[in-house]
């Protein structure tokens, strides 16, 4: 018998009698929070910045204002031609994205209770890009902010997901004497534009 069958047989023999699966009732946790306010507060606690804007044009102009000196920029918003210094050709070899300075991506889901923004393969041209970039800029429609993780997972179809990620704030570590340092292995800053 191979290990697979041995393990499964042992688990079957050793498991306790069947215990019912509890139901999650999200109403128990509901505090009727102001979703936008809470999202902004939690993103800032996580080390990110939040700005409210009217459209994508404003996103790009504000991004340029915030990062005036950067050499390598990419945005997947519509009409980003003037902003982009690289095109989709560059994604063929992601290893060469190491000098990417600013990346702008659009998300369709955010979570108020923890400032997490959801991205999937549909939102990112290549998986490594939100991590390898120096600065990450995310655009999120206000009406797509849900209060808690329970509502977030209701909005995600588990059978239609190849890869997805919740990002809350910039990459960070406190592994040296518990001193918080922003910018560990991933993005060194996170800016979220709510529109």
């Amino acid at each position: 018998m191979d290990s697979r069958d041995t393990i499964l047989k042992k688990l079957k023999a050793n498991k306790p009698e069947f215990i019912a699966l509890p139901k999650i009732n999200p109403a128990v946790f509901d505090e009727n929070i102001d979703k936008v306010k809470e999202f902004i507060r939690k993103t800032e606690v996580a080390g990110g910045k939040v700005f409210e804007v009217t459209d994508n044009k404003e996103v790009l102009s504000k991004t340029q204002e915030a990062f005036p000196e950067t050499k390598v920029n990419f945005s997947n918003l519509d009409d980003s031609g003037f902003f982009n210094t690289i095109d989709s050709e560059s994604f063929k070899n992601p290893h060469e994205l190491n000098d990417l300075d600013v990346l702008v991506l659009e998300s369709t889901l955010g979570v108020a209770e923890n400032g997490a923004v959801w991205l999937t393969d549909n939102d990112i041209p290549v998986r490594v890009i939100p991590f390898i970039t120096k600065h990450l800029v995310l655009v999120l429609p206000k009406e797509n902010i849900v209060p808690y993780m329970h509502q977030a997972y209701s909005a995600i179809n588990p059978m239609d997901l190849d890869y997805g990620i919740f990002i809350s704030g910039p990459s960070k570590t406190a592994d040296i004497e518990q001193s918080l340092v922003i910018g560990a292995q991933g993005a060194m800053s996170l800016t979220v534009f709510l529109k």
Partner: peptide, 18 residues
């Protein structure tokens, strides 16, 4: 774990990338 409401990255892997 640390008092954070969520870790910075929560990665959901399902199908291999290209």
């Amino acid at each position: 774990a640390t008092g954070q409401p969520i870790t910075t990255y929560s990665s959901h892997f399902r199908k291999p990338g290209k």
